[in-house]
Amino acid sequence: MGDVVNIVLKRLGLGLVTLFVISVIIFGAVEMLPGDIAQAVLGQGATEENVAALREQLGLNDPAPVRYFDWLAGAVVGDFGVSLVSQTSVSEAIAPRFLNTLFLAGYAAVIAVPIAILLGVIVALLRNTLFDRVANVLTLTSISSPEFFLGYILILYLSVKTGAFPAIAKLSTDMTFLELLDRTFLPALTMVLVVVAHMMRMTRAAIISLLASPYIEMARVKGMPAWKVIVKHALPNAWAPIINVVALNLAYLITGVVLVEVVFVYPGIGQLLVDAVTKRDFPVVQACCLIFAATFILLNLAADVGAILTNPRLRYKK
């Protein structure tokens, strides 16, 4: 097991390096945006004195590297500076929004991942049958429909016509957990529909690619029924690619949900990001991007560790 710890530490180190590079890119990209930040923030009230004063106040007159390291030093301890628009702490603005996003992503993942893997196993077992084809067509349809379209369809049928679930996922602090689940069901379902196909098809492909292995033939000539061949003999060897695609989709659930949040008016980090971009609130934009990057890196790390833990060849030495 010492090896696993070693690998994790190494990947974590590499992740930090990646994150550093990304922070440079984010900062540089924002720097390169055309126009003057102070002018953009002040908008119509941008007199020359106002702009100069704001530049002074925001420290925009310092050279870029100085400002970058100021920003980075803050970001490392969780202080992303002050919002240009609201003049409040960026961290305080982001924290509750990010938690909301994590909640929604977790909600969707708890439904989507088991369904996707189960379906993947079933279609691998029933490959090339009618069931396989129908599942294929349905999941392809759901993956190729834009989220906002799926969201509106669900609102139309599950909310407007039947009234089964609320159409708007506005949160308040006094809701019980069950109310919370009910309120956010439709956005979660939309996201489930978007990610389930990818994971299911990967599970199916990973399993089927193993079916020509000699150990699968061995399981068959040992008299194992088809489901056991798939579940006990193919699936355990297919985890690595499945875990990878799951991690990729989890990252998407966290970072790619802007449209769903907008449709359902859900107070997540995606909406915050979009608002910040339109208002040129750069500290918020930078912070959101950095958080998204960290999410990707952490999930990929988790996928690597998962792949190692499910592979006895890596877990146990010769």
Binding site: P214, Y215, M218, K222, P236
Partner: peptide, 16 residues
């Protein structure tokens, strides 16, 4: 009726 395959290394499931 049992079967013994050519390559035991490939015919034992690596996961168990």
């Amino acid at each position: 009726i049992a079967y013994v395959a050519q390559s035991a290394a490939a015919s034992f499931n690596p996961a168990h």
